[in-house]
Design a protein around this nucleic acid. Structure first.
Length: 292
DNA sequence: CTCCAGGAGATAT
DNA sequence: ATATCTCCTGGA
């Protein structure tokens, strides 16, 4: 097959998506998702499910195309990128007008989104995340995909799925440089596979119930549970408290000396029902140095 | 060489 | 409940 025959036609994001160059880049590679690699400055290749997708910013428009073998519906891409009106509605309910810190992030990162990723795969990546930087998480996650997934495109491999991972030994995962996280993945895989429909049940539960279920898994504490729920299930009340956010709350909101649990309480009260979306703006604002 | 990352788990208080 | 230590690996 020649290379042009592989790809479907280019599509454009519909008007009003609101992305900027910066917020698109940050959405794809800012630490919520590890499925995208950059081909050049504003050109990415990645996966949505088992479909290989390319996405680029060109002349103030965003284009995407997918390969023809596992094509994805435009509706599915719109859903993945949260392009529906629901995004603006929820963003509008954050206190960015009255909060100058959040306001600065929302204005400078306008269009920043949380991607609608599948829960199982997102849980997998965040099981790898402890004490690792974004490139390191992507590297070891990709190594697992390359070893146990199927090749979707030259050099791009699928997430193997929990059923496959349940057959892999901790030792084999350690050989892929997962370190102590290998045990988390191996044990979690066996637990998930032993309970059919577990993922669907968690996905359709309320936030509190879903979190209780996730916290039973080895390697899943408060932070990883909230990341999996926020980024892998659109539970927008989840507020992952990582070291960046903790420092940010201390510095920008003068919460020095507050206990971690009290900081979370503050965040839920102050940011409201969609605190997780605010967290994403705050996290990126801090990470990109916008608040300095 | 030492130190510590976008944490979790075990143990001790 | 809260504090401290360890766990793999890699990069500063």
């Amino acid at each position: 097959m020649n290379k042009n025959g592989f790809w479907g036609p280019w599509h454009t994001f519909k008007d009003g998506h609101g992305f900027s160059k910066l917020s698109l880049k940050e959405t794809l590679q800012g630490g919520q998702c590890f499925d995208w690699e950059s081909l050049s400055d504003l050109y990415w290749r990645g996966k949505i499910g088992d479909s290989v997708i390319e996405c680029k910013w060109e002349e103030s428009e965003i284009f995407w195309r997918c390969e023809r073998i596992n094509p994805v519906e435009p509706k599915c891409v719109e859903n993945y990128f949260w392009l529906d009106q629901d995004y603006q509605q929820k963003l509008d309910q954050l206190p960015w007008r009255s909060d100058p810190v959040l306001g600065k992030c929302v204005k400078q990162l306008s269009g920043l989104r949380i991607l609608r990723q599948p829960l199982g795969q997102t849980l997998f990546y965040f099981l790898l995340s402890s004490a690792k930087s974004i490139p390191q998480i992507q590297a070891i996650g990709t190594a697992v995909c390359e070893r146990y997934g199927k090749e979707l495109f030259p050099g791009i491999f699928s997430f193997p799925g929990w059923a496959k991972l349940a057959e892999v030994s901790e030792e084999d995962l350690r050989s892929l440089k997962l370190g102590y996280r290998a045990k988390y993945v191996a044990q979690t895989a066996k637990i998930i596979v032993s309970q059919p429909n577990w993922l669907q049940t968690v996905q359709s539960s309320c936030y509190e119930d879903a979190k209780v279920e996730l916290l039973r898994l080895p390697g899943v504490g408060e932070k990883v549970a909230d990341c999996a729920l926020l980024f892998g299930g659109m539970f927008l009340e989840a507020f992952p408290m990582d070291t960046w956010i903790e420092k940010s709350l201390e510095k920008r909101y003068f919460l020095n000396g507050w206990k971690s649990s009290h900081k979370i309480h503050f965040a839920k009260i102050h940011f409201g029902e969609f605190a997780g979306l605010a967290q994403q703006f705050l996290f990126s604002g801090e990470r990109l140095g916008i608040l300095k």
